[in-house]
Amino acid sequence: MLKPFKHLTAIAAPIDGPDMETDVLFPSRFLKKPLGPEYAEFLFHDLRFHADGTERADFILNQDPYRAASIIVAERNFGCGSAREGAVYSLVEYGVRVVIAPSFGDIFYFNCLTNGLLPIRLEAGPVAQLRRHVKELPGSPLGVDLEARTVTGPNDAKYPFEIDPSWRHRLMEGLDGVDVTLGHAAEIDAFEERYRADMAWLFNGDP
């Protein structure tokens, strides 16, 4: 069961740089780590920490109030690169619930949705405005309303966004895909029986 998501008012951190790769969000050496709260530490690890483990003061998430951010406002093609889902687990463990950007790496976008993190695509102009606002007015919160599909900026400007209705429903109810799918078990079984008969050559090759 995922945490249902309807509304959120929270501090937002601007993350600078287009084409932010999943490798940067979550360095590859943490790939083999078992899941758990430790993932919060891995987020942007090499930007956040020096080699000796101390914080890099220049990184935004090490600065107050951004340290407590639950929303990230990023630049275009955020989460591009490899399918690395650890990037999403680490965002979730850090406490991020929403990422706003003009565009996302495709797999990253869906990894967010499957893991209950809301990715919001807005036009480049509004995103640039939001980034400016959260920089100029540190700590002033952004509002995200999934029910109304709007983001509210610090100056109360509202930005509508689009999201696939079935994903929206799932996020709002906190439904996990497997639950939804098991409700279609009869259809799947019927499909499978026909498929395995029609494509019989797939099922009698060498093991």
Partner: peptide, 22 residues
Amino acid sequence: IGIGHAESTHVLATQTLWQNKP
């Protein structure tokens, strides 16, 4: 199609996957 690990779990459990058509 490249998917995520949570989606991979879904495939292991159901041999199906929810997808939006690109």
